[in-house]
Structure formats: C-alpha cells, structure tokens
Amino acid sequence: MRVILFITTLLVGLVFGSCKSEPTLQKYFVENTENKDFIALDISSNILNVDQAKLTIDQKEALHSFEKMNVLAFKLNDKNKVQFEEERAKVNLILKDTMYQQLMKFSSGKQGASVSYVGADDHINEFVFFANKNDAGFAVIRVLGKDMNPTNIMNMISVLKESKIDLEQLKPLQELIKK
C-alpha cells in the first residue's frame, strides 16, 4: 500500500513539476484575446485565395507549409499608455526566451520591429513578427506551419503577389492601421 502511495505521489509530482510555467506567446494570445485593448484575429491559409494551378512547385510547397496566422494587436489610446508599455515589455520578455531565435531586428526612435522563429533552420514551426509604434500600438503576428524554412517565406511573398486576398478577414485591423 505504501509503495502504491509513493509511486502515485511521485507521478503526480513529475506531472505537475514538469509543466512549464514560463510565459509563451501562445499563452499571451489566449490571455489577451478578450481584452478590449487588443484586436485578435486568426487568419487561415484560405485568405490567400490563389489558383494553385498557376503556382510553381516551390510556391505550392511554400503554400502547403503555411497553416495559419494569429494576430494580436494592442490599440494605443490616451487612457492606456501605461498598459501599452507594460504589455510591450511582456512581449519583449517572451521573445527573449531561447525558444525564439531572432532573425532580424530594426528600430528608429518611435517604432521598431523584429522577426524571430521557433524550430530548426530548415524545419521552422513558427515565424513571429513583432512591430510597435509609440503613437499607435503594437502587433504580434505568429505565422504557424509545418517544416517551413526561409526559402518558403520568400516563396510565400511571391504567392501573396498572385493572390486575391480575402480582405474581409482583415477588417478588424483596419482601425489600427488607419492611425
């Protein structure tokens, strides 16, 4: 009986002790989806609305590696400037985790942006674009897929040029972009 109790206690301890409690972008998105200061969108790959028959093999591969995008944008106004700074700091802290490998970062006084990824160089599961502007807010975009690579991203840009994007899915962002 004591052996069973000991093993059960050990297993429960392992299960709860092994759970990672550190913040992740996924948790951050879930926590802020219903927040009135944020705009949250899930954009599926069908937004691109492309004729696959006209795509090259490389473009088709890039398109098939893309699953969806999650967008979370903070709308800055006169009443939430302190919260803006706090939320931007949270995102910056999350992106400093070694899980997110930074590809590039650029900034100029009032605005900045970074591109990071999760996974190995040739088997990327997620690209993260983080852009912020001191007088408008910030946006975090998670591009999720399977076995993406930098070449896929470049090919996706050419697919975007040939797509007839369904702008209806992007309507909630129009307010933020207008600023």
Rank of each mutant, 00 (worst) to 15 (best):
42 D>F: 07
42 D>Q: 12
44 S>C: 05
44 S>E: 11
45 S>K: 13
46 N>H: 08
47 I>S: 02
47 I>R: 00
47 I>T: 10
47 I>M: 15
49 N>I: 02
49 N>Y: 01
50 V>P: 13
53 A>R: 12
54 K>W: 01
55 L>F: 01
57 I>V: 08
59 Q>R: 06
59 Q>I: 05
60 K>V: 03
62 A>G: 12
62 A>I: 11
65 S>N: 07
67 E>H: 07
67 E>S: 10
72 L>V: 03
72 L>P: 03
73 A>I: 10
73 A>C: 12
73 A>F: 09
74 F>N: 00
75 K>S: 08
76 L>K: 14
78 D>H: 05
78 D>E: 15
78 D>N: 06
78 D>P: 01
79 K>L: 10
79 K>A: 08
81 K>A: 10
82 V>K: 10
83 Q>T: 11
84 F>I: 03
85 E>P: 05
85 E>L: 14
89 A>S: 12
90 K>M: 08
91 V>Q: 06
92 N>L: 15
92 N>W: 09
93 L>A: 14
95 L>Y: 07
95 L>E: 06
95 L>Q: 10
96 K>M: 03
97 D>V: 08
100 Y>Q: 11
101 Q>G: 02
102 Q>G: 10
103 L>P: 00
104 M>F: 08
105 K>L: 10
106 F>A: 15
109 G>L: 09
